[in-house]
Amino acid sequence: MFKSLFAFRKPLNRRTDLVLGITGFILFLTMWEITVRSGVIRPEFLPSPVAVVQAFVNLFVERNFASDIVISVSRVWFAFLLSVIIAIPLGLLMSTYRFAGAILEPFVDFVRYLPVPALVPLLVIWFGVGETSKIAVLWMGTFFQLILMISDDTKRVPVEFVESGQTLGASNGQIMRHIIIPAALPNMIDSLRITMGWCWTYLIVAEIVAANSGIGHVIWSLRRFVKTPEVMAGIITIGIIGLLTDQAFRYAHTRLFSYLRR
């Protein structure tokens, strides 16, 4: 049993994977609790895990935290889907027609390297402090990354797949629909999963600046009162949502693309 845990570059069974994953969390919590009890760090800076859980409950009971979560999740998904529906066609176009790639790639690369937080003041000037500017921040952070990832995913479809389609009599449109998209889809879904994670990163940037709702707003406003347990509870909430979203994507991936399993 113990030896099988250290099998060189071999997979473990699902149950062991799960147990180890949970063990990681438990170890982290234990060390945290020990640190707090030792009294090395003042509780204003590092509250105990129990205090954080207490704060987490309080957030829901006293501050209507659930509605903030709903708002944040909606913002993330709205901006994410807006990125996806524009990035997928453009990414396909870029990888298919060299002229589209030649026009878009240098520009996309330029924008992609602009730090999103630096764009926030500009976006607020343009769109005000309402929902639009928040969506714009999230969109800026994901769209330009996603378009290149989609383009790369489709470029990686083996040339033999395309050429065999041509010699089987498929038109260019049929090759796109019947060969390139199905071939690239597993990698595209992975790209979406990764981009979704970035969307959550930029959510906090968006909600810290001029917002009166959302998880980021809650975290930022409680900071002023040094409510460290609540701040940590807010951060952990994002972690949990992120973890669940990621797992949902992975689950969908293995279900949709079961043919990739050997």
Binding site: P158, E160, F161, E163, S164, I179, A183, L185, Y259, L260
Partner: peptide, 8 residues
């Protein structure tokens, strides 16, 4: 030469 059968 390379396997061009479609995995999906």
């Amino acid at each position: 030469q390379s396997y061009s059968s479609y995995p999906w």
